[in-house]
Design a protein around this nucleic acid. Structure first.
Lengths: 125, 125
DNA sequence: ATTAATGTACTAAGAACTTAATACAATAAT
DNA sequence: ATTATTGTATTAAGTTCTTAGTACATTAAT
C-alpha cells in the first residue's frame, strides 16, 4: 500500500497513533487479530523493524498483546480502550481550545465554524 | 530559559510553529523586532544553527524578514498574517473534527465539552 | 517429523537532525 | 576609524530514526 507518512515526526510514532486511533475508534475490534509484523510492514510500506517498534509500544500501553506464534491481537479490556479514548479526546480538546483561543477566536465563533464544517464533512451527526 | 521541546518532532519545526503562532496571535506585533539569532537560541535553549533554520523558514513564508545587520522583524503585511491565521485555524478545525468524529463523538457532545472546558480555561469569552 | 508462520533479536549502514566551533560580510554605534 | 552586533555560511561530530539483512525460538498446520 505504501501509506504516505509525514516527515514531521518519526514514522514509528505516526504508526502508533494510527493504530491506536483505529482501536479506540472501534475499527479494530477488541480481540481481533492484527496483521503480522511483516504484513503490517508491507501494508504501510515501512520496514518490519519499524512496525515491530510501533507494536511493541502499543503492547506496552496494553492496547495489544502478542501470543508467541499465533500473532497479535487487540486487547479485550474494554475499560482500557475506553480510558485511552477519553484521554485522547481530552487531550485533543484541550490543545484545540488553547490554539484557537491564542489565535484570538471566541468560543461562539469556534462553535459556529465547527457545526458548519462538521455538516460539510459528515452530515448532521 | 531552556524551553522544553517534545521529542516527537524536530526542534526546528516546533520552533517554527511557536513563533508562527505568536505572530498570528498578535503577541509578536507586525513590524516589531525579533531577538537576534543568537539571543533567540539562548532564549529557547537551542543551537544558533537550529534557530537560524527556523527563522529562515519563517522568512520563506514571508512572516518575517531580515535587514542585513539591524536584525529580523515581523512582516508588516497584515493580509499575509491574517491569511496564515485563517489557514491555521481551518487546518486545526478540520483535523479536530476528523479526529473526534472517528472516535465516535457526536457534534453536540463535542460542542458541550468545548464550551465547558473553554470556560474552565479562560472564562466565558 | 516436517514445514510454515509467528514474534523477537541482532548488527550494520545510511539519512536526518542537532550541536559545536569558527569564520565572514555588512552596518549601526562609538 | 574602530568596535560591536547582526545575518549568514561552513565543517565536523554525535544522536536518533530507518532500512536491510539475517537469524533464532515457538507453535500451528501438514
Amino acid at each position: 500500500m505504501a501509506f504516505e507518512f509525514s516527515g514531521d515526526s518519526p514514522i514509528y510514532l505516526q504508526l502508533i497513533r494510527m493504530i491506536r486511533q483505529r482501536i479506540v475508534a472501534g475499527e479494530l475490534a477488541p480481540g481481533s487479530k492484527l496483521p503480522s509484523v511483516r504484513d503490517l510492514a508491507v501494508e504501510y510500506g515501512v520496514n518490519p523493524n519499524t512496525a515491530q517498534r510501533s507494536l511493541a509500544e502499543l503492547e506496552r500501553e496494553g492496547l495489544v498483546y502478542a501470543d508467541r506464534t499465533s500473532g497479535r491481537f487487540v486487547t479485550r479490556e474494554l475499560g482500557l480502550i475506553e480510558k485511552v479514548r477519553k484521554d485522547l479526546a481530552s487531550e485533543q480538546i484541550a490543545q484545540f481550545i488553547q490554539q484557537m483561543q491564542s489565535m484570538g477566536f471566541e468560543s461562539e465563533q469556534v462553535i459556529t465554524i465547527i457545526l458548519e464544517k462538521w455538516r460539510e464533512q459528515y452530515g448532521n451527526h
